[in-house]
């Protein structure tokens, strides 16, 4: 903020304002300019605490633990993550990808990476439709279903990669092909070079 180029999509950046300032800004906007946005239910954990907003390490750690606990409780509260998966794959994955890594849109725009988003950001995005994103209001996908969806995503995101520590950022086949060539085949060719290397004193 402010955006240097109104046509270009804003990438995700660390916020400049503190949460308090943002709250004030929103309050001002709602009071003086616009109508309030769609409501977000209580209990959807908000933003990840930022270190800068806390005086000492201890209170930050405390706030962080509190946030994580709230997210954990929110995820636990979802009763049908299988339905959440279905909803995610039908309505979200075509833009944001199966792993939430984002994807290309037309006109140089992109569907952003979801993996840093807090549950509340998920929720707000669905009901407000930022950028080119369509709305998914509370009638088409109820708050409970939204909780399922978000819980599914967070569970998937936090699941360790059973296939090994290098998950290639969960990009999928493009990254696998790239690694297959650059690491796999190259290492084997290096072995071939070792085996066939010339053993000679001169030339």
């Amino acid at each position: 903020m402010p955006s240097m180029n109104p046509d270009a999509q804003m990438p995700r950046k660390p916020p400049v304002f503190t949460q308090e300032q943002i709250d004030d800004l929103v309050a001002y906007y709602e009071e003086e300019i616009g109508v309030a946005g769609p409501p977000v239910p209580e209990g959807v954990p908000g933003n990840m605490p930022r270190r800068a907003e806390y005086g000492d390490e201890e209170s930050y750690e405390e706030a962080k633990a509190e946030y994580e606990e709230a997210v954990g409780a929110y995820v636990q509260g979802a009763d049908d993550t299988a339905a959440g998966e279905k909803l995610y794959l039908t309505n979200c994955a075509h833009c944001h990808g199966w792993s939430g890594g984002g994807g290309a849109l037309t006109g140089g725009n992109f569907a952003p990476d979801l993996r840093e988003a807090s549950p509340r950001q998920f929720y707000e995005a669905m009901v407000t439709g930022p950028g080119a994103m369509p709305y998914f209001n509370d009638e088409t996908i109820t708050p409970d279903e939204k909780q399922d969806l978000i819980a599914h995503f967070l569970t998937l995101e936090n699941e360790p990669n059973a296939g090994g520590i290098f998950a290639l950022n969960r990009v999928g086949q493009v990254a696998e092909g790239f690694i297959g060539w650059t690491v796999g085949l190259s290492l084997i060719v290096a072995c071939a070079i070792w085996i066939t290397a010339k053993q000679r004193a001169h030339d």
């Binding site: 998966e85 279905k86 794959l89 039908t90 994955a93 075509h94 833009c95 944001h96 990808g97 199966w98 792993s99 890594g101 984002g102 994807g103 290309a104 569907a111 998937l156 699941e159 990669n161 059973a162 296939g163 090994g164 290098f166 998950a167 290639l168 969960r170 990009v171 999928g172 086949q173 493009v174 696998e176 690694i179 690491v183």
Partner: peptide
């Protein structure tokens, strides 16, 4: 190096798709 993590993709349905 994890390859083709089908357990993360989810099962096939003809109505769903992923970007990329």
């Amino acid at each position: 190096v994890q390859v083709n993590p089908i357990h993360l993709f989810g099962p096939f349905t003809p109505t769903s798709i992923t970007s990329g």
